[in-house]
Design a protein around this nucleic acid. Sequence first.
DNA 1: ATTTTATGTCAGTCTTGTTGACATATCTCA
DNA 2: TGAGATATGTCAACAAGACTGACATAAAAT
Lengths: 176, 176
Amino acid sequence: MSKAAVPPALHQTTPDGDDILGEIPAYDLIELFFFAYRDFVSDPDRILAEFEFGRAHHRVVHFVDRHPGLTIADLLDILRITKQSLNRVLKELIEKGFIESRTGTTDRRQRHLHTTQRGRALARQLARLQTRRIMRALEAIGPEHRDAVREYLLAMIDPGDRNRVRKLVFETGEIS
Amino acid sequence: MSKAAVPPALHQTTPDGDDILGEIPAYDLIELFFFAYRDFVSDPDRILAEFEFGRAHHRVVHFVDRHPGLTIADLLDILRITKQSLNRVLKELIEKGFIESRTGTTDRRQRHLHTTQRGRALARQLARLQTRRIMRALEAIGPEHRDAVREYLLAMIDPGDRNRVRKLVFETGEIS
DNA sequence: ATTTTATGTCAGTCTTGTTGACATATCTCA
DNA sequence: TGAGATATGTCAACAAGACTGACATAAAAT
């Protein structure tokens, strides 16, 4: 946060001690992020509604499909919700045959989660929808900016979580 | 959706008729968007909690501050929620002195909304928090990519809404 | 004068998050 | 082996923030 270029006389602060200079609100990026995310998550809604599922179900089936064999604890760590919240949607996904829960072999306390054929089909259909929106946007700005967008989103994540997310996003397949 | 470069023998589809080729899921951007947005909206939470406000209050105070004199109908159009949902949070914001509602002069049915001094202070404090996260991310990727990020987010929005959002985001001040 | 529009409000429901308490099976370690 | 820690499951109550449907009022428009 170097302010070397700002002459001391102009380096004003509010009574709260917050900087005035160099803190022009990024209203464009704040609001575009809001509207873009809203449309992004709205794509899957119609399809989820056919199964009487909501967005919470989407997140679960997505991460289970992406990381077969995931445990409950892994999933809680990814989603950052309580086990009670998770259990409600997970139970429905298992009952309706989208996710399968297998008792661990080395540690029989654990439950390893896998998508069934139906679950896999749903997860990928939703991913395909969202991918289309993403590819359309990348084509609009020129696909050469893909890395910049990826790094921007990564840098928007809390520094302390970035490595965890990096592993999760860029490593495919089993977690544990 | 030209597939001219794909030999017919390789141009496979699923039983549902969906393309396989050219539709590799963009898992990285899907998941990074999810994690980035979650952290982005979490910043204001601590401050909002001090006033017993939630994210719905944030959105209202933000857009009222950005567009002084906004009417109820304008706000409903921006937020895409029902008037009952809006009314609940708006009433609290007015009662606690963050937003002021003024009867229209030309059309006395309308209510023109303005932030009070407290409302303005809150809206800008929250915008400052989110701006810091954004600027940190832009510095990480090189600020020259700001336009690419902005255009990417805009292109992620439903084509039919893009003009509406463009006006809203890039035009400052009064709406009506 | 009638209809339409802008807003306000009541009542009930749904999803998805929360906290707190407690149960069970299994693993780990002294 | 026995005690404690761990992984999961479940019950109950609650809260935020969305929804629908119905109805009320004031003011504008026709």
